[in-house]
């Protein structure tokens, strides 16, 4: 049980890391949101699952936290995306796209 829990914790940590790496590496706010939201959400769920295997008695509270993250994180992202668009930020386009698959 403890080993399964640790594996989930590492997987969760890995996806949190990838999400954060995504918001550093992606070229504009929309792509950063894409990487950040998805990976951070699954990462958090991974950590929560890992903790469940260490402390099965906490299942009810862990489930509430998981549901809360699952509901709020896409709502937050869409709100930011809409704000960015209305603030005049245009999505990044790859260079030379008009000439086809250039660059």
């Amino acid at each position: 049980m403890a080993v399964i829990g640790d594996l989930f914790l590492v997987l969760g940590g890995l996806f949190l890391f990838l999400g954060a790496l995504g918001i550093v590496r992606m070229p504009d706010v929309f792509n950063r949101l894409q990487a950040g939201t998805k990976a951070a959400t699954l990462g958090a769920l991974g950590i929560i699952a890992g903790v469940f295997f260490h402390h099965p008695g906490w299942w009810a509270k862990l489930m509430i936290i998981a549901l809360f993250v699952l509901i709020t994180s896409p709502v937050g992202s869409s709100t930011i995306a809409r704000a960015a668009l209305s603030a005049g930020i245009r999505p990044w386009r790859e260079r030379g796209e008009d000439e086809g698959e250039g660059a």
Binding site: G5, I23, V29, G36, A44, V69, S73, A87
Partner: peptide
């Protein structure tokens, strides 16, 4: 560089911190 970029970072930090607190409980 833009404010929305910082908000994205803050949002992600929030999720990471939440996960970190759950981890801390364990």
């Amino acid at each position: 560089p833009s404010t929305p970029d910082r908000v994205v970072a803050a949002d992600t930090l929030g999720v990471i911190t939440t996960a970190g607190l759950v981890w801390l409980a364990s």
